[in-house]
Design a protein around this nucleic acid. Structure first.
Lengths: 199, 199
DNA sequence: TCCCATACCGACCTCACGGTATGAACGCAA
DNA sequence: TTGCGTTCATACCGTGAGGTCGGTATGGGA
């Protein structure tokens, strides 16, 4: 029988990558398992061997792929921010490179679609959101301690606001994918960040 | 044969209302036509007589029901705003009464889900977004003319930011439906609006 | 009154979806 | 080498999805 070498790790990552691509373009309900395994060059037998059902696949994708993307896209860069200007330029960069099918946009879209109907998947997605929010909150804490964030700022509340703002950007970017909208968002976001500056 | 009186107008509105409820809970792909017609007390025959397919139903829902909800929820109240304090209290009210299945949240969720894959539906949803944005933009224009909005404010850009921010709120509200999150969002939103005040 | 377009019903069709059953190839352990 | 659990392919199933179709009631216009 035609059969590839046994590579469970590569197989899982191939499935998750294909699933992420499908989720980002079609949403959770719209995504089909057929296209996913086809895109991964596999079959349903392999899929259902590693994941018992579609929901579990989505949860694994959220806790693995999506969390990793959040790490490299946001958490690590945010951890290196040591000034408000650095925070500004990072925010502008992430804003300008926003695309309808990137990790942040997909996180927002899948959350909006499934949060009410699927508590399990919602919890996995919320963990990614929470990590994002925490990274910003601790950044603001550091800024307050270092003196480049205003004393009266409440880090957690402001972090929640930042995450909400950027989540909104992902939606408006999808609605009108032109660069002008992203530039407007980036500028407005920088203006907001300026209100956090000490003095 | 058991048959109701011919009431095409009421039938269409019943279908659109049921469709809106289904879309708000399941998303576009997740929504089924069976539950919609059942909830409306009708049959598929009636549905497909008025709308040729699911996509057309969604478009009609967006251009009719959703636009009407946008009108009463936002456009009309925004048109009556004549001070920054009034804008603030309206924003806070809309923020505090946010629910995962209301019109604004559904608009955002369906847009995030279908914008990339369905240009026709996306256009209909974008029209609702544009109306929302325009109402805020013209409000800011009026505020500048009346002197309660700062001269340096760019109405269109700020309106786009406001819409994005509130869109983000609908997502984070879905992720954590507690009242505390909404209160945090409302307060942060008011703080942002305060930066628009003249002087 | 008759007529006919419209509104609606109800049964049915097709098909793609998520999911299952079975078993073959692989690789490690002994 | 043998044995056995893991990994994956192939073939298949049941269900519910979107959508179709013939037919029947309705009601306004001629």
């Amino acid at each position: 029988m035609k059969q590839r070498k046994k590579q469970p790790v590569q197989t899982r990552s191939a499935i998750l990558e294909a699933a992420g691509s499908e989720f980002s373009r079609k949403g959770y309900s719209g995504a089909g398992l057929g296209p996913i395994v086809a895109s991964a060059g596999l079959t349903k037998g392999a899929l259902f061997h590693h994941y018992p059902d579609k929901r579990s696949l989505a949860v694994a994708w959220a806790t693995d792929s999506l969390a990793a993307a959040m790490e490299s896209l946001w958490l690590t860069p945010l951890g290196g921010v040591a000034s408000l200007d650095a925070f500004r330029s990072l925010s502008r960069a992430r804003c300008m490179e926003l695309q309808p099918d990137d990790a942040t946009s997909t996180l927002v879209a899948i959350t909006a679609e499934t949060a009410a109907a699927d508590p399990v998947l919602a919890a996995a997605l919320d963990a990614v959101f929470s990590a994002w929010k925490s990274a910003i909150s601790s950044l603001l804490e550091r800024g307050k301690a270092a003196g480049w964030i205003h004393r009266s700022i409440q880090p957690e509340a402001e972090a929640a606001f930042y995450v909400a703002v950027f989540s909104g950007f992902t939606v408006t970017t999808k609605a009108s994918p032109g660069e002008s909208v992203r530039r407007t968002c980036a500028t407005a976001l920088e203006a907001y960040l300026e209100t956090l500056r000490a003095q």
